[in-house]
Amino acid sequence: MSALLLGVTVLFLHFSEGARACMTLQTRPGHSNRPDPAAHIKLVVSDMDGTLLTPQKQVTHHTLNAITALRHAGVPVCLVSSRPASGIEMYLEALKLDTPYGALNGGSIFNPDRSLRSQLTLPTDIVQEALGLLQGHNIDAWLFRGHEWVITNAASPYVEPESRAIKQTPNIVPSFKTMLAGVGKITASSSNYDAITQQEAEIGALLKGRACVAQSAPFYLDITPLNANKGYALHQLADFYGIAPHEVACLGDMNNDLPMFKAAGMAIAMGQATQTVKDQAHFVTAANTAEGWSKAVTEYILPRAAKAD
C-alpha cells in the first residue's frame, strides 16, 4: 500500500525472505583501487534521484526506517542533489530531516532552517559559451538562478515531468539574453541519450578548468561553477558538523556523484549506477528498485556508526 505524506509519496513495501536474500546477493564490493573504506562514519551524504528515491520518486518504508536507525546512532543524513532547493525541500518533512542540504549539484548550500549558507555561480562568459554550444546541437537548455528556473522552450519533453518532480513552475522567456548573471546551474535536456553523453565529453573538454560538466541523468547534462560539485558540498556539510570528510559515507548513482565519492571516507554506488560510478565505489549495493539505499545503510554504514566516538 502507499501513503501520501505532505505531497511526497512514501511507499510501504514488504519483502519475503527469498526477496531479501536476492537483495543481499546484489550487494557486493566495488572495484575501486582507492584506500579501504573508513572505519568510523559520523555523517551520511546522499544523492536523491536514482539513489534515495525510487524511479517513481517515492520514499520507501525501509528507507525511512534506515534514516531513523541512523538518527538513533547519532549519524545525520544530508541530501545533495542536482535539483533546485524546492525539489529537495519538498521531501524534508516526510523524511524527518532537519539537516543542511546542497542544491544545484552542491553549488548552493542551505542551513537546516532553509536559509542560504553559501552559493557559487557561473561567470557570464561561460554561460554564454555553454548556451551557444548547446544551441548549435539543438539541445534544450535551462537556467537555474537562485530559486528561479528559466526556460525558453516550454514544449521540451522534460519540462512537465521536471516541474512535477520539483514542484516548481518554470519562468518561460523568449531569450536568455538578460538572464546570464547569477546562474547556479545550466541543465541540458534531450531524449537523445547519446547526444547528452557526447556533449558531456565535448563541453567538458572545452570548459575544463573553468566549469564542472557532468550527467545527472541519462537525459540531463549539468554545467555548474568549477567548485560547485558534490565534493564541495560534502566538505561544506562535514564542516557544518565539525567532522572530517573521511568520516562521511556517501551514496550515489551518476557521474555527477563522483566528486563526493572522491572526497568521502566511504563511497557506495547503487546497483543501477553507471559502470564508471561503480568502479569508483568502495561498495555496490542493490538498485533503487530493490531497497539499495536502506540495504547499504544496514550492511555498511550502521556497523561503522556504532564504532564512531
Rank of each mutant, 00 (worst) to 15 (best):
H62S: 10
N33K: 09
T54Y: 04
L53R: 05
M48C: 05
M90P: 01
H31C: 14
N111Y: 05
S82E: 12
D98M: 07
H61P: 12
N65E: 14
G87L: 03
I126P: 04
G132M: 07
K42M: 15
V45D: 08
G87A: 06
S81I: 06
Q56D: 08
G102L: 00
L95R: 11
A130T: 11
G87H: 05
R34V: 13
D98N: 13
K96R: 14
P55V: 12
G50V: 04
S118I: 01
G107K: 01
Q58A: 12
V127K: 07
K42F: 12
I67E: 07
N105V: 00
V44F: 02
P55M: 07
V59E: 05
T124I: 06
L95W: 10
V80E: 02
Y101H: 05
L53Y: 05
C78W: 03
K96V: 14
N33R: 15
K57G: 04
A66R: 09
N111F: 03
H72L: 15
L52R: 05
T99I: 01
I67F: 14
A73R: 06
S82M: 10
M90N: 05
I109R: 00
D49R: 07
H72N: 11
A39G: 15
F110I: 00
L97G: 10
R117S: 02
H62Y: 12
H40D: 14
L43T: 00
V44L: 08
A73L: 09
S108T: 07
A69I: 11
G50K: 06
P112A: 03
S32V: 06
L116Y: 00
L122M: 12
D98C: 06
D98K: 14
D113W: 02
H61V: 13
I109C: 00
P84D: 00
F110G: 01
G74V: 13
Q56P: 04
I41G: 11
Q119T: 03
K42C: 14
L97Q: 06
L53N: 02
P123M: 12
M90L: 06
L97D: 08
N111V: 04
P76T: 07
Q119R: 03
L70I: 01
K42R: 15
L104D: 05
T121D: 11
L52F: 07
Q58G: 11
R71A: 14
D125T: 14
K57P: 09
H31K: 15
M48N: 02
P100I: 00
S108C: 10
A94G: 08
L95D: 09
